[in-house]
Write a protein that binds this DNA or RNA. Structure first.
Lengths: 152, 152
DNA sequence: TATTGTTATACTCTATAACTATA
DNA sequence: TATAGTTATAGAGTATAACAATA
């Protein structure tokens, strides 16, 4: 699982890619996703399903359409993710009487419990992976990443 | 406040995900990847194949194994990507006389030309997408992202 | 015996279009 | 007509194992 901590391809770091934000995002995301999925696997969750569960466990009462936009997923992917979480008893679909087309996704009591455990596992894994970015740097990073993730 | 038009999905930004570096990376990467692929499509390249081409066009003369480690891809994926670029006449495999197992991937003259055009297209798309992160913020972001992408 | 590249396979993710039921 | 959710499908990305050539 853990290899020798040798610099990965240090020979290639003089490439133009080293200044390429898109490339750095892709590589950082790949590492983060792998660590997150591994940390969530014992809860039979993945990064994707956890993100849906987290939103369903909050106060916002999101519709599937809102989940799709916020998570930048296709509505059909949200269907599959909610189906999965519903099958695990973690979320439920509630019909909105005001507009019977929409379905609000809310976490069950079990879902809220699992969500807290998942958040703890994901946070721990993330902090371990990004241990060399901490304190004020971490705060700054979150601020900058928000601007990339939600451009004006 | 009711009259202020806000982007759809803004309602959900109070979620715990808003502070989640993994989630922000995933969303930022999804946007960046889509913009990059769209910008590179006229050159019949995608973000993945462009990154291989960029490394092949440099001075490093990487082996396929080195490409796999640096790009965080499986060696079998590198085979497919190099096959594709080779079919387009953009790179060539060179055998290393010192170790005949390894194959060094180098860009052809056409490959270097296409690579420059691709870099211009990708850079323009990226700067357009991330227009609200500029100047010193951008420099800082690159530094922080490097630490996420290449952890110690 | 170990490593590089390769092939094969399966699974996840992403993108698109069409259908239904409501509005 | 338009929108929310659903279904179906194909393509891209990811992960794993096995194999031949070479070290």
């Amino acid at each position: 699982m853990d290899g020798i901590a040798k610099p990965t391809g240090a020979r290639l770091r003089d490439s133009a890619l080293t200044d390429d934000i898109s490339f750095l995002l892709a590589r950082a995301n790949a590492l983060s996703l792998a660590a997150g999925n591994a940390a969530l696997a014992p809860l039979t969750l993945r990064a994707r399903s956890y993100s849906v569960l987290e939103l369903a466990a909050g106060q916002a009462r999101p519709t599937q359409r809102e989940l799709a936009e916020f998570l930048r997923l296709d509505p059909s992917q949200v269907v599959a993710l909610v189906d999965e979480l519903q099958g695990q008893g973690l979320v439920a679909r509630e019909s909105d009487p005001a507009d019977r087309r929409t379905k609000v996704v809310v976490a069950t009591p079990l879902g809220r419990e699992v969500c807290e455990a998942a958040r703890a596992a994901a946070t721990a894994a993330e902090q371990h992976l990004h241990a060399d970015v901490s304190g004020s740097d971490r705060h700054l990073l979150v601020d900058l990443l928000r601007r990339l993730a939600f451009p004006t």
